[in-house]
Simulated assay, not measured.
Amino acid sequence: MRLTVYLAGEIHSSWREEIKEKAQTLQLPVDFVGPMENHDRSDAIGEEILGEQPDAVFRDEAASSFNNLRTQVLMKKADLVIALFGEKYRQWNTAMDASAALSLGKPLILIRPKELHHPLKELSSKANATVETVNQAIKALAYIFE
């Protein structure tokens, strides 16, 4: 059995590469998908498709529609979602993706540091599993295949 895992969370650090490397080391039969990790492309995709927009608000709205389309298609095809809430970056997209996963009935592993327990308590209680580290998330993923 092979699983597709959607990796939801900020795109500025290397946490996705860490998960992919650990999964490969454990020879887990998984394919990973997620949001556009090229931040400049993610911000510009609306204008690339629709042409120049009149201002920054319209530019953001145009980009958001195509990024949301991409996320919806890939998340619907995913078997599982891993959502990481880090300490450094704002987490609005992560919260939106984790909530979307839950509303789609996708199993969710939530990674959040202990310091974010209180602000994420409701989301954590809805997740299938809540862990504090990438290593714990990989162990949870590996357990599925035992």
Score class of each variant (00 low, 15 high):
A137Q: 12
Y143N: 11
F32M: 06
A63V: 08
Y89R: 02
F145T: 06
A63M: 01
K76N: 13
P113R: 03
Q24R: 13
E17K: 03
D97Y: 08
G46W: 01
E17N: 02
Q136C: 02
L123K: 02
K139H: 11
E132D: 12
E47Q: 14
A101D: 00
P113W: 10
S13Q: 10
T25N: 11
S42R: 01
E132Q: 05
R41A: 13
Q24S: 12
Q24Y: 12
T4L: 05
I49R: 06
A23N: 06
L108H: 04
F145G: 10
P35T: 04
E21L: 03
S42L: 07
H118I: 10
G46R: 02
M36V: 12
T130Q: 05
L84I: 10
V73R: 07
S124K: 02
R41H: 12
N128E: 15
T71D: 05
E61N: 04
N93Q: 07
A140P: 08
A127M: 07
R70G: 08
S14M: 05
E48G: 09
I144Y: 06
R90T: 12
A101Q: 03
Q53P: 09
F32T: 00
A83R: 05
E47W: 03
A83F: 01
T4C: 15
I19Y: 05
V5E: 01
F32Y: 09
S64A: 14
D31F: 15
A56F: 09
Q53Y: 11
I45C: 14
I144A: 04
Q91W: 03
T133G: 13
I49N: 09
G34Q: 01
S14H: 13
M96V: 01
E18M: 05
L80Y: 12
G86W: 03
A23G: 09
E17H: 02
M75Q: 09
A95L: 01
I144D: 12
P113L: 12
A95E: 05
Y6F: 12
F66C: 10
G46H: 00
T130R: 04
Q91L: 14
K126V: 08
L50K: 08
L102Y: 00
S99N: 08
V134W: 12
F85Q: 03
A78W: 00
N38D: 14
V134F: 09
L26D: 14
I45Y: 10
L3W: 03
A140M: 12
Q53H: 07
L84A: 09
M75H: 02
N135S: 15
I49L: 12
T133N: 14
L7R: 01
Q136D: 11
E52D: 10
Y89S: 11
P119T: 13
P113C: 14
R16Y: 12
R59H: 13
E61D: 11
T133K: 03
L26Q: 06
E10Y: 07
A63F: 03
E10A: 07
L110W: 01
I82E: 07
L108K: 06
T94W: 00
I45Q: 01
Q91T: 05
V30P: 05
L116Q: 06
V73M: 07
E122R: 08
Q91P: 03
A137S: 11
E146D: 14
L102F: 06
I138R: 01
A101M: 06
